[in-house]
Design a binder for these strands. Structure first.
Lengths: 151, 151
DNA sequence: CAAAAATACTTGCCTATGCAACAAAAAGCA
DNA sequence: TGCTTTTTGTTGCATAGGCAAGTATTTTTG
């Protein structure tokens, strides 16, 4: 019987990592199957933009815990695929404001439906209370990571 | 108050993804600070190799849920950095057997110590029972993902 | 006001992931 | 035996992440 520490050190990081990868992989598969040429990271940005667009890349980076170069490049692709546009900030020429295009708004319902289905599928057989505990633990871990990384 | 589904769909995937990223980031930081030129994914492979080397790339891919090209390329870098060598399988010339080098064996204690420290740090303030529940939920989610992906 | 510091973003370099296509070798089968 | 299928691994192409360095612009400050 491994100690608590052995157990978690062998398993926790790996399981979080694997879960993240496989969930993304499945989500990407569903997007593709349904004819959406949208990556999982684009979807994560869209989730925020559907709530509120006209935000800065910086804001998106902070909200998603991505770094600015990553967001910049994802926005590049999204702009190329006509999902968003970069607009000049009226008073600050350093800043881009990211707005959804018609097309970016239109894919919302379809993608959300896939998200809901995905969610049902992957949490099948999971006790809701335990899922809540899991999310709570992840929040604490995130909090610890942010402190350790100096964020 | 969001429904259970809204709650989890907005949070679970993202939290798992962020956690995985920030944990890896912190781990990479610790490796670098301590003078190890070893990536987080190399470390994940090493964890298996320290237990048993002379295994195939295929085995490493399955064990870590990576695809074969990923493992192949990580091994390329590890070979370049003198952590492992590819050896011919005596009876199957398709197959590479991956063996640790002296150097690959020697970094073990140092890296494991960092791993242990990392583990303490990120689970600071987390109830052990809740961590166990979290791991259990992740295992179920992994299981569901594997089924959905046809693995 | 002019120089210095901070901010928002981009680019370059390295790593990793997924998928598809390909090569080499082994195994199965007719 | 010889042909087909399967297995093992590599390469190409696209996406993404982290970090460091560079650019443009705004804010601070002396």
């Amino acid at each position: 019987m491994p100690t608590f520490q052995e157990y978690t050190s062998r398993s926790f990081g790996h399981k979080v990592n694997k879960s993240a990868r496989l969930m993304s992989q499945r989500m990407a598969q569903l997007f593709k199957e349904n004819g959406y040429n949208i990556s999982i990271e684009q979807w994560r940005l869209l989730l925020y933009l559907w709530r509120e667009d006209g935000v800065t890349q910086n804001f998106l980076a902070e909200t998603t815990s991505k770094d600015e170069p990553s967001v910049s490049r994802i926005i590049n692709t999204m702009e190329k695929n006509n999902l968003v546009i970069r607009a000049r900030h009226p008073h600050d020429r350093r800043t881009n404001l990211i707005y959804l295009t018609e097309s970016g708004r239109n894919v919302r319902d379809g993608l959300m439906a896939i998200g809901a289905r995905m969610n049902n599928d992957i949490t099948d057989g999971v006790d809701p209370d335990e899922l809540t505990v899991c999310v709570k633990v992840l929040e604490k871990v995130l909090d610890n990571c942010n402190k350790l990384l100096g964020n």
